[in-house]
Write a protein that binds this DNA or RNA. Sequence first.
DNA 1: CTGAAAGCGCTTACAG
DNA 2: CTGAAAGCGCTTACAG
Lengths: 334, 334
Amino acid sequence: MVPTIQDVARYAGVSRSTVSYALSGKRTISRETRERIEAAITELGFTPHAGARALATSQTMVIGLFVQFFEDEFSPAMLQYVLPISDAAREAGYDILMVTEADGPHAVQRISSSGMVDGIILLNVAHEDPRLPVLRKMRQPASMVGLPRTPEGFDVFDLDFAESGRILVDHLAERGHREIILITPREHVFERGGAYSWRFQDAALQRAASYGIRVRSYYGETQQPAVNQQLNQILDAPDQSAMVVHNDAVIAALPSVLYSRGVRVPDDLSVAGMFSEDFGRLFSLPYTAVETSPNKLGRSAVQALVQRMTTPADANPWRVDLVAPQITDRGSTR
Amino acid sequence: MVPTIQDVARYAGVSRSTVSYALSGKRTISRETRERIEAAITELGFTPHAGARALATSQTMVIGLFVQFFEDEFSPAMLQYVLPISDAAREAGYDILMVTEADGPHAVQRISSSGMVDGIILLNVAHEDPRLPVLRKMRQPASMVGLPRTPEGFDVFDLDFAESGRILVDHLAERGHREIILITPREHVFERGGAYSWRFQDAALQRAASYGIRVRSYYGETQQPAVNQQLNQILDAPDQSAMVVHNDAVIAALPSVLYSRGVRVPDDLSVAGMFSEDFGRLFSLPYTAVETSPNKLGRSAVQALVQRMTTPADANPWRVDLVAPQITDRGSTR
DNA sequence: CTGAAAGCGCTTACAG
DNA sequence: CTGAAAGCGCTTACAG
């Protein structure tokens, strides 16, 4: 039914090995032979069987992408990582097996030990991520977005959230603000070990303290209508001059809440956030923000992984890249 | 290095076939033998090699999911289909190979003919979708979300957009509106063959005509700041009483635009849209809407595909399921 | 209840 | 420049 390399060989009057070498280019084939083979391939519509090739070469040319969706996080943000990763993988010749299973450790074990993938990318990595211990036992290399407590054994990429916190506090301090409202991820994200939450918050609080700036910190909600209710409650307090938002759901809802209250930015309130340019465009956020660079982080993770996969005995030390945050001034502070 | 079925057999003192049958349960194994095999498996940490199994059985237990992201569509909506599909696939024992390649037909050809997947799901199918002709030549069954001009050969699931258009017009007609603003997908979506765009619009216009209701139809923008600008321009016209929005980007931006203009819903303007409950929650949309049921559609596509994959000679006719739209009244009309 | 062997469709040393 | 053959790690008729 579906043609095999044997059919091609027979049709072209050569051996299977010759066809295989013509395909891979790993040895020189006479022009005439090569042309006969190519003709046979197009004539028969032959494509090598991926499974057979994987068995023979121990290479699947597939990357496992492990995504976790939590109720308390804002899902659209995740897509910003997935798409660049998928694109970068394809550019390097890999396909993406996307795994969204709730039981992360089990999924890693299952996919990895069955040899379905050559390498693994973890998204949304927690401080004590239960996927890492099992991942360490697997034979495939892995890279990730998100900084775990013990990154040894993996290439790790993340935004420098501490520095991001400082940059935003500096930005407001320079403009003379003496009080800042800080809206963080949900409390549950802290508890779960989403290290980005406290890396940002701790650094921001510390930097603010060094200026003598007072910070009122709130765990932001992530589901409507709680988001709007909470924002309104926070804004009911008098004399607020500046707000830093490190919470996707809150920042996405902010424009409508501010409009509804008649709060003008930056005249009545200075606002600065943490989001990517794409995210900002999607939700029409007119706020100065630290660019979270999901594109860059995702692509870096792919690149590092491809490097490890193609150089199995790679002696290079494991990377921990904390991308330096850049602020994009959209004029929402003063 | 990594244990094979041979190692397990040796360790348990049986043959490879016995181990294989113990794994599959396709023949009865004596209790004692089975226990020895199980012990060997856990002891050695054995997992069957997926590639070898695929080669022997011609089954990969992987579904190819082909996603297309267009500049002129609103990406968060896509995730609402991807996640339920991934979950449903896993429940049926399948993993998901997610393909986002820009060249859809080529990607289908590549993945399908190399035997990487047992079946295929297409998302965001166009009226004349260039992926369908190549898909028809492939050996794997396929299902899809989105109604193509010629659905023969596939199981097709989509919302009944025509009926959705009628329902929303009826809803406003019942409330006495004599003029409706209709915001559709971008013009380019119509041109590209996104049939959902005109199926909805044509039906809505026709139904409105039957009531003698006047409809002003606009191609909605999808990128900021164009979305807000356009909305403001549309709303500048006097005497508007009702608006139907069939455009994700526009409906997501609508609350802030209406707030900023001081337009109150439904007192000043009746608003009805097309979006899922999840989407509405994500963007805090307080509008009456036809539920677009991405969850249901995605799961149906998986179910139908699993049926075809497990019953290759399935004689059941191809399905074209247009899900009956349900309106969710959130009190945004009167 | 269990085993020996063929076969799935490739790749790659080994030989010439 | 090309071929014959072993091997990758499974499954499954065939045999007993």
